[in-house]
Simulated assay, not measured.
Amino acid sequence: MTLTEKLEQVKHLFVEMGQALIAYSGGVDSTLVAKIAYDLLGDRALAVTAVSPSLLPEELADATAQAATIGIAHKIVQSHEMENLNYTSNPINRCYFCKSELHDTLNPLVLELGYSYVVDGVNADDLHDYRPGIQAAKERGARSPLAEIGVTKAEVRQLSQQLGLPWWDKPPQPCLSSRFPYGEEITIAKLHRVGRAEIYLRNLGWENLRVRSEGNTARIELPPEKIQDFILTTDLPTLLSTFQNLGFIYVTLDLEGYRSGKLNQVLQQIAAR
C-alpha cells in the first residue's frame, strides 16, 4: 500500500468514527492523528493532554502551541499515576499502569462528551517493541488508526511533512519515567531532576538526547555521530556543576550513544537466563 493510500485509509477510519477524542501528548504521532482528525471532523475532534510530573512543562507548552496551530480544540486534564505504587515502584510493565491511569482518566470524559472512542497515536512500529501500555489501552477500548492501517514511524514523519506540520522531525520524547532502570523507585524529585538536566542540554543545542538516571549518576546519551563534537565543544566543568546543582553526584557520557528503548535491553538478558 502506498503512503497516499494509507493516508486515505486513515481518513476513512475517522469518517467512519464521526468524532474523535485524541489522547494527545504533542509527539509527532499523536499530533499527526490530531491534524487528520481535525481536518476531517472539525469541532467533532478534541485533543486531550494528561498532565503529570512525568511530562515536562516545556512539552506541554509545545503540545498547546501545536494544537493551536492545527486549530483543534485542546483540553488539559490531570492524571495521577504517581499515586499508584505499581507505577512508582517501576516494574518492567510500568507503562501498563501509566496507560491504565491515562485511559481511566479519559474514558469518563468520553462518556461525558458523548464520544465513542479514545484515539491514540500508536504507530505500526510500536507494535513490534515492548510496549505494555498498548495492552492497557486496548483493554479500555482505545483505537489506534495509524497502527490499524500499518503506518510506520518513518511514514508518520513523511505524512507530517507533506501536511505542512513544521514539527515533522521533532525528536521522540517519551515520559520522563523512561529514564530510570526498572526497579528503581520513581519520585517527583527524580523526575524533576532528570527533566531539568535534559532541558539544560537542549538549551545548549543538543536536541535528540536522553539523560538516563541511576541512583546519583546521570548518563548522557547522544547520537553516536554527535559524541565527539559534544566533547570538543561543551564546557564540561560547567555542565558538571549544573548537573551536581540539580542533585546528581556523577555525570557520565554513554559511548555507545542514544538508542530508543535502550533500557529494555535488560529484558533480553532476563529472558535469556
Results as ranks from 00 to 15, higher is better:
S160D: 05
A63V: 01
G141F: 08
R273G: 12
P224F: 09
P171I: 03
V110C: 03
M17Y: 10
K190R: 15
K11M: 08
L113N: 11
D125S: 10
I270C: 07
A67L: 03
G261H: 07
P172V: 14
E198D: 10
A147M: 10
E112G: 12
R143I: 08
V48P: 05
L191H: 01
T69A: 15
E207W: 14
Y38G: 00
Q66V: 14
D169R: 13
V77A: 15
A47Y: 01
N93A: 13
Q135G: 07
G114R: 12
I134W: 02
R202Q: 11
T234Q: 13
S260N: 05
H74L: 04
R157I: 06
R140W: 06
A271H: 09
R210M: 10
L240D: 09
A50S: 13
V33F: 03
D169V: 11
L40S: 06
E225W: 08
I227N: 05
E184W: 08
E59C: 03
R193E: 13
R143F: 07
E214G: 04
T187R: 03
Q158K: 11
I72V: 12
E101S: 07
R273D: 11
L163S: 00
T69H: 08
I199C: 08
T252D: 12
L85P: 14
I231K: 07
Q244H: 13
G141A: 09
Q244R: 15
Q228D: 15
Y87D: 10
S213P: 05
A68N: 14
G195E: 01
P223L: 13
R202L: 04
A124N: 05
E112L: 14
K11S: 07
E214L: 11
F14L: 07
T217I: 14
R219L: 11
L102F: 12
L113F: 13
L46T: 02
P166F: 06
D29N: 10
L46K: 05
E214D: 10
D29A: 06
S241M: 11
M82R: 02
V51K: 13
V48D: 03
V28D: 00
N90F: 05
S116C: 09
P166Q: 05
T238W: 13
W206R: 06
D62L: 13
L55F: 14
G195H: 02
C95E: 04
L32F: 01
E59T: 04
V211F: 03
V51T: 13
